[in-house]
């Protein structure tokens, strides 16, 4: 188990290191940062001066190592546009995105896993059809349209939920549903197919042959097996929600990471963009690690060879 843990930890660090290189290169190769910072209409002399001030004229490897060194010592840099420390900016925006992501994933799991299990237990019945229909609708409906529909129904027509901002937890309900609904179909289909497989397996037949109650058979001897790939998928989905919720954040005026990334790209605020890329990549890697550890806890064959 210890060896497994160390291996996975090493992999995670490697992934973060590689992404940091890519993040850095992408930002520096996508345009001349000095020109972008100097702004439109700046003279070549201005640009050259900016380039020298911020050190963009030095070799890129040198710049990268310096950046990494700074980050490792806890220094994320300063936004030239907002004239604030990047760590302070992230501290403002991260909790919003994290709240949104966790609530959205919880909603998705609470909806899709019971539906997937029910569909697997009664294939080709009404409940299976309804689940399938929900899945198809979830995949086909653009999230902004769904979000606008929710806003109209609960915010404008019924007036039960706030439609904009992120000051109370109630503000997060609609955005979470809109974001989470998009993750529902994949999780539900995976749960369903996993349950269908495991319900056919020999050890489930054994559990039935020994008179265990249906609940025990389905949950303890079925879902525990079927949930393993779902855990991995959910980790990726959560990572995606943390990084890719720009649309939902914009619609509901939530000042999250996605919104910040979008603004920063427009301002060519490279210190912020790099930090966001790194944070999201790290979140992905850590979530994947957590998913692997959770799966090792669920299935002893992963941890004991």
């Amino acid at each position: 188990m210890l060896i497994y843990l160390l291996k996975r930890l090493l992999m995670t660090i490697l992934v973060i290191a590689v992404t940091s290189v890519i993040a850095f290169l992408l930002v520096h190769l996508s345009g001349d940062p000095a020109a972008a910072m100097a702004g439109e209409g700046a003279s070549p002399a201005d640009i050259a001066s900016v380039r020298e001030t911020f050190g963009f004229d030095r070799p890129i490897v040198f710049q990268y190592l310096e950046w990494v060194g700074r980050i490792l010592s806890g220094e994320l840099g300063r936004s030239y546009y907002l004239r604030m420390d990047v760590s302070d900016i992230l501290a403002d925006h991260l909790p919003v995105t994290a709240t949104l992501g966790v609530m959205a994933l919880s909603f998705a799991l609470l909806l899709s896993i019971p539906l997937g299990v029910a569909a697997a237990l009664r294939p080709n019945t009404v409940i299976d059809r309804v689940a399938l229909w929900l899945a198809v609708a979830g995949q086909a409906l653009p999230s902004f349209l769904f979000a606008l529909g929710l806003m109209y129904l609960f915010g404008v027509y019924l007036r039960v939920l706030p439609i904009s901002g992120g000051t109370t937890w109630a503000h997060f309900i609609m955005p979470s549903v809109a974001l989470g609904y998009y993750a529902t179909p994949a999780i539900m289909r995976l749960t369903r197919s996993g349950m269908m497989d495991v319900l056919q397996s020999d050890h489930v037949r054994t559990a039935r042959a020994y008179g265990l109650s249906s609940w025990r058979v389905v949950i303890r001897h079925g879902l525990r097996h079927a949930i393993v790939p779902v855990v991995s998928l959910a980790a990726v989905q959560l990572g995606f929600m943390l990084g890719g919720s720009i649309i939902i954040e914009s619609i509901f005026s939530l000042k999250g990471i996605g919104y910040l990334a979008w603004e920063s790209i427009q301002r060519a605020d490279i210190e912020v963009i790099q930090a966001i890329l790194l944070v999201i990549a790290t979140a992905y890697a850590v979530l994947t690690l957590l998913a692997d550890l959770l799966n090792a806890a669920l299935d002893p064959r992963i941890r004991i060879s």
Partner: peptide, 24 residues
């Protein structure tokens, strides 16, 4: 039937490699 299974009638299966639940 469920009360009887495992209590009054028990069954032994062909493939012991897969008949036990690997998770417990």
């Amino acid at each position: 039937w469920r009360q009887l299974r495992g209590d009054r009638i028990a069954m032994i299966f062909q493939d012991p490699m897969t008949a036990l639940d690997p998770c417990y």
